[in-house]
Design a protein around this nucleic acid. Structure first.
Length: 492
RNA sequence: GCCGCGUUCGUCUAGUGGCCUAGGACACCUCCCUCUCACGGAGGAGAUCACGGGUUCAAAUCCCGUACGCGGUACCA
């Protein structure tokens, strides 16, 4: 059975790159009917951020990336938080020391810095000189007993070619001579990432390690550790990075990187998931589909189709995908169109706009496309309907392109007022009737459509952009419409 | 510096030796619809497949080199 995992470090809120890594791990596990584990790697106490664990779990829930084992729900191979597994790491690393695969090191930070500087000055690769490996056993014991601060290093075997078949990058290989003796256990008693990650992946039965490209050069260190322990080595897959517009590694400076930011901005989880899934992966073939549900992603995902090159995190397409998803979800809502619409923007609407339910419904319907696309713009799109008094900007109503000047506008409004006054109340329930009526008026006056309709639209709304005149009349009703037309005509 | 990885329209991508005078999507432009914006519809522009060599009858696809970018080189993950 396939077991994948997502092991974030709680040094900040879950960012979109992490979300994508989690997603790919999740997709593979679900598709192969395997297990997906969430593990918290909190071994860096200095960078721990309060609330990060909660945010990570919440965001994954929001995105519908759910795990089968994790710190919040437990599982057979817990605990799933590394700070609670310290005993396990101590025990395992002790085994390595006894096997001669690892050794205590008492070198101070100063000595290490000095050593590296010297090596760099001689144009050598900075690498630990194994000073403490030459210490006699009694001496090590003595220092340990004296409580001298120390770390445990992996005695990385030299002269080996470490290679593996990466599921994304194919054959990758490193020369073990270039690999430093990694610190496995820090002097504060916490393991380093390398140690904890290998031990946990093994004890949690992880079969596929799918992670970001930044881990590529750590992988040989991990493989060597698996070998030192005598454990089976899992499959590795290294994902391409997410990039800024300038193709540097995605960073906070150039925009929002926390998945939470997108959630707060009102993006649908389906849209964000859809978008990041396509950043570095595509089902391929003749497939021209762009909108994928989680179910479709699970069905179609494959590591072979993951790209090697990084992808720029460019929001323009996200906006479009979000719009597609909004429309899709709106269409799938049960009930009548008007009720769905009202439901959708329920929370956006001020209390005093609800007095006249019929009016509100009609108004909403005229701006349906816009509020479905962006519910947060509901108020801004509707506010002109609920204004006490519409103020007319003469410069706006006199429109050169529309061949409308002030006297003509005034005349059009007066004629429209007359014609609509004479119309029965019921024709205001019928957009077609209004259209016929007004187009007849246009013909009678011998003017162009715009010469009547443009001034009317401005009179009814006071706005430059708005729904069309027939819709406006229908939504406002006879009384309000006439009132606005009259007051506009008088103001000119 | 050293090690490793990468490179197809502005962006996301299709492409696994002939179907490629390189396809799709977003963004952009034009037109249509039209009383404005948006929506919708129809078109357009946009990539000498990073560059240079090979291999081959044939290369975006295979090989070598170069450039550029990125990652790593921590008692960070």
């Amino acid at each position: 059975m396939i077991v994948t995992r997502f092991p974030p470090s709680p040094t900040g809120y879950l960012h979109v790159g992490g979300l994508r890594t989690a997603l790919y791990n999740y997709l593979l596990a679900r598709q192969q009917k395997g297990r997906f584990i969430l593990r918290i790697e909190d071994t860096d106490r200095a960078r721990y951020v309060e609330g990060a664990v909660e945010n990570i779990i919440e965001t994954l829930n929001w995105a519908s990336i759910d795990h089968d084992e994790g710190p919040d729900i437990g599982g057979p191979n817990g605990p799933y938080t590394q700070s609670e597994r310290l005993k396990i790491y101590k025990e395992k690393v002790q085994f390595l020391v006894e096997q001669g695969e690892a050794y205590h090191c008492f070198c101070t930070a100063e000595r290490l810095t000095e050593m590296r500087e010297r090596q760099q000055a001689h144009k050598e690769a900075p690498k630990y000189d194994r000073h403490c490996l030459r210490l006699a056993a009694e001496e090590v014991a003595k220092k340990l007993n004296a409580g001298e601060p120390s770390v445990i290093r992996h005695k990385v075997p030299g002269g080996k070619k470490v290679s593996w078949k990466d599921l994304v990058r194919d054959e990758v290989s490193f020369d073990s001579d270039l690999i430093d003796d990694q610190v496995l256990m820090k002097s504060d008693g916490y393991p380093t990432y390398h140690l904890a990650n290998v031990i946990d992946d093994h004890s949690m039965e992880v079969t596929h390690v799918i992670r970001g490209e930044e881990w590529l050069s750590s992988t040989p260190k991990h493989i060597l550790l698996y070998e030192a322990f005598g454990w089976e080595i899992p499959q590795f897959a290294h994902l391409p990075l997410l990039l800024n517009k300038d193709r540097s590694k995605l960073s906070k400076r150039q925009g929002d990187v926390a998945a939470d930011d997108y959630r707060k901005k009102g993006y649908l989880p389906e849209a964000l998931i859809n978008f990041i899934a396509l950043l570095g992966w595509h089902p391929g073939g003749d497939e021209t589909q762009e909108i994928f549900s989680m179910e479709e992603l699970i069905e179609k995902f494959s590591l072979e189709k993951v790209h090697k090159g990084g992808a720029v995190f460019d929001l323009e397409k996200l906006d479009w995908i979000n719009w597609q998803w909004r429309r899709r979800k709106f269409d799938e809502l049960p009930g009548e169109y008007e009720d769905k619409l009202l439901n959708l923007v329920e929370n956006e609407i001020p209390a005093n706009w609800r007095d006249d339910a019929e009016l509100l419904k009609r108004c909403l319907k005229t701006v349906a496309e816009k509020v479905i696309k962006e519910p947060s713009t509901t108020v801004e799109n509707l506010s002109f309907y609920f204004k006490e008094k519409v103020t007319i900007d003469a410069q706006l109503i006199a429109n050169e392109k529309m061949k409308v000047d002030l006297p003509l506008a005034k005349n059009s409004l007066e004629k429209a007022f007359e014609a609509l006054s004479a119309a029965p109340e019921s024709s205001f329930d019928d957009e077609e009737a209004l259209k016929t009526l007004l187009l007849e008026l246009v013909e009678k006056l011998g003017i162009k459509n715009g010469q009547l309709l443009w001034p009317m639209r401005v009179a009814l709304t006071g706005e430059q952009f708005s729904p069309g005149v027939f819709e406006l009349l229908w939504a406002l009703g006879k009384e309000r419409s006439l009132e606005r037309l009259k007051s506009a005509a008088e103001s000119l």
